[in-house]
């Protein structure tokens, strides 16, 4: 079962000392919708190669936080910084487009970058920086086959050869075959190879969840954000899922951010847990600490 790291490896190095390093740093993120404060000064650190779970009651702002991290919402305050090992840090919120300020006149070089982010920036830039996600309500391309779904995710790698593609050059076909093979490897990893040519919308629910995970992995991310991956699965499927997530961490050195209501699964998998309530972090720590924390118990029971 020792599947090799699929695609060009972004995560070099081995877990150990480096796994203590912070890969994703969320600092003081505040998001308001109109008058409602959805997230209030949320800060958390995701360590490299860890599984971090975000838990909390319904409406606590978990998915909203995910949407901020993946660039779908733009927080009014705060910083979200991705620091890959041995590479410069990316300010994710800068990718969404910042407003122009007078200070830009002093540094005209920034203006171009800001303009570019404003015109062409968005969640896709965050994904390109190395953060992939799944959705709470599955968002597959239903009228396309499973394999096509996975190929769409490799658009960035493939579309460099536009004219080659039109002419059907050998180089293009090689790239396309590589993409197909990469997709098939991920499908095999999720035991979905039999479904490759079926329409994604026609698959059973559990399979759709796995296809979505496979699809986001095809973007070759550093961080994988899973939004309630076990929702709607039966206990056996949940067990299999837990095994797969663990393998993603161990075999592929992926850093995983997880929203989940299944506390059993969370306690079993995570290295670090963040508890949100009413848009605020009320506790964080290792699973054992969280289980003993009175505020967490109160938030869940009261």
């Amino acid at each position: 079962m020792a599947a090799s790291r699929i695609g060009a490896g972004t995560a070099s190095g081995v877990p150990g000392e480096e796994s203590l390093n912070t890969l994703l740093d969320v600092q003081d993120v505040t998001l308001r919708f109109g008058g409602v404060v959805a997230l209030n000064r949320v800060s958390l650190q995701v360590a490299w190669g860890n599984i971090t779970a975000i838990i909390g009651p319904n409406g606590a702002g978990k998915t909203t936080l995910f949407n901020c991290i993946t660039g779908f919402y733009k927080p009014q305050n705060g910083h979200i910084i991705l620091t890959p090992p041995n590479r410069p840090a990316t300010h994710l919120h800068h990718l969404l487009g910042q407003s122009f300020a007078w200070s830009d006149l002093v540094h005209p070089g920034q203006v171009w970058g800001k303009l570019r982010a404003k015109m062409f920036g968005g969640p896709h830039s965050v994904c390109r920086a190395g953060i992939a996600r799944t959705f709470q309500n599955i968002r597959l391309f239903k009228e396309m086959t499973v394999l096509e779904n996975l190929l769409v995710a490799q658009y960035r790698q493939l579309n460099r050869y536009f004219f080659g593609g039109l002419l059907g050059t050998r180089h293009f076909r090689d790239e396309e075959n590589m993409a197909i093979n990469r997709a098939m490897e991920w499908l095999r990893f999720f035991s979905l190879e039999a479904d490759a040519d079926r329409l994604a919308g026609q698959l059973p629910y559990g399979h759709q969840r796995r296809v979505e995970m496979a699809r986001s992995l095809c973007t070759d991310p550093m961080v994988l954000c899973l939004d309630e991956p076990a929702a709607g699965l039966n206990p056996m499927e949940t067990q299999a899922l837990s095994h797969l997530i663990r393998r993603l961490k161990n075999d592929f050195n992926l850093t995983i951010l997880l929203i989940e209501h299944d506390i059993g699964l969370v306690m079993e998998l995570s290295d670090h847990i963040v508890v949100l309530d009413h848009g605020e972090v009320i506790a964080q720590g290792c699973p054992a600490d969280i289980q003993r924390n009175p505020r967490v118990v109160e938030a869940y029971l009261g």
């Binding site: 993946t70 779908f72 062409f120 968005g122 969640p123 896709h124 830039s125 994904c127 390109r128 992939a132 996600r133 959705f135 968002r139 597959l140 391309f141 239903k142 009228e143 396309m144 096509e148 779904n149 769409v152 995710a153 658009y155 960035r156 699809r215 986001s216 095809c218 973007t219």
Partner: peptide, 17 residues
């Protein structure tokens, strides 16, 4: 075609819609 099916999913996959 993916954009036709689901724009948000496309953006999450790094496609500039």
């Amino acid at each position: 075609e993916a954009l036709r099916e689901d724009e948000i999913a496309c953006r999450s996959l790094g496609i500039n819609h």
